[in-house]
């Protein structure tokens, strides 16, 4: 580690410490927004870990998130909460592994299409299983876990995701993924097991999504399939990550904060226009800012330095 790494680590720790003080403000509204931002930060950053280098657009976030939520919803009465979180991690990893094995050996289009309907398909299966063997559709989740605790848990997960992302970036796996993203044929010819590398990283992002779903489950008191598997979540995560920029580890964060605030504002004043907002955001990403806010910042930075 060189000086720059230490400086970045220090800055990250400082940022985390400041973020951790938010519940002390005592303002419930800020805390609610804080939980939402923390949740999307974790989801978008872990999404970018996989989709950033490989350019495979995953829309499976909602499916894994919903599975995590459901693990808690079904087990909260019988199993300690901490163990449920571990189970959620495992379920997320297994589900992502299976999806990855089925689709990641093929070209990117198949992967996108497969993940597009995954949340809806999982919802259908969970509903079917519950109504045939579970006896009822929804579950009550009654715990004494408060909003503050959810927030701190999410911050801890965020710290872990950043650490893992940083480690992957320095590892052979991260290097392999960058080559795969540039040219998959070249990667295969230089002896990289492309399918295995992609599946491993996809499992990491699936695990994180499931864990986040599990952590947020106590926020709702009653959980039913159509709430847990909301396909919108996948799209929001994609937009936030791409809007921020996926080539830097901190990029998604730059997209999450403004988009979450904008989303909150629009859904309060014009609840029917959130779809339009999403559509416009997608077009913006493609036509105006293909490298996200981070790309813009870096472009102006470079110009500024070039002039000075």
């Amino acid at each position: 580690m060189n000086n720059k790494d230490w400086r970045n680590l220090g800055l990250a720790a400082l940022g985390l410490a400041i973020a951790a003080c938010l519940p002390l403000s005592g303002n419930g509204y800020y805390l609610t927004i804080g939980v939402t931002i923390a949740m999307y930060t974790v989801l978008a950053t872990s999404w970018a870990l996989f989709s950033g280098p490989t350019h495979y657009i995953s829309l499976a976030t909602a499916a894994f998130y919903g599975l995590g939520t459901y693990v808690v919803a079904m087990g909260i009465d019988d199993v300690p909460y901490v163990i449920l979180l571990v189970i959620a991690l495992g379920v997320g990893a297994i589900a992502a592994g299976l999806v990855g094995l089925a689709t990641l050996r093929l070209s990117g289009v198949y992967f996108v299409i497969f993940t597009l309907g995954l949340a809806e398909m999982t919802r259908q299966v969970v509903t079917w299983i519950q109504s045939n063997w579970g006896g009822h559709q929804g579950n009550y989740v009654l715990t004494d876990i408060t909003e503050e605790m959810i927030y701190w848990q999410l911050l801890a997960v965020a710290a872990c995701v950043y650490l893992v992302g940083w480690l992957i970036g320095r590892s052979r796996l991260g290097f392999a993924l960058k080559i795969i993203g540039n040219d998959e044929v070249v990667a295969a010819h230089s002896g990289i097991n492309t399918a295995r590398s992609k599946v491993i990283l996809f499992m990491v992002s699936g695990m994180v999504a499931a864990l986040v779903g599990a952590i947020l489950a106590p926020r709702w008191t009653y959980i039913e399939p159509s709430m847990a598997f909301s396909p919108m979540l996948s799209f929001q995560v994609v937009i936030m990550a791409l809007l921020g920029g996926v080539n830097r580890l901190w990029g998604p964060l730059v997209g999450v904060i403004p988009f979450t605030l904008l989303w909150e504002a629009v859904s309060i004043s014009f609840p029917n226009q959130t779809l339009l907002l999403m559509g416009v955001a997608f077009l913006l990403i493609v036509y105006a800012i293909p490298h996200g806010f981070v790309g813009l910042i870096e472009k102006y930075n470079a110009r500024f330095r070039g002039d000075g």
């Binding site: 657009i57 799209f235 907002l277 559509g279 997608f282 077009l283």
Partner: peptide, 14 residues
């Protein structure tokens, strides 16, 4: 894919 997603959301929104 991203552009047509955008169009699809805009169409639904409209």
């Amino acid at each position: 894919i991203l552009a047509t997603f955008g169009m699809s959301f805009i169409l639904v929104g409209l």
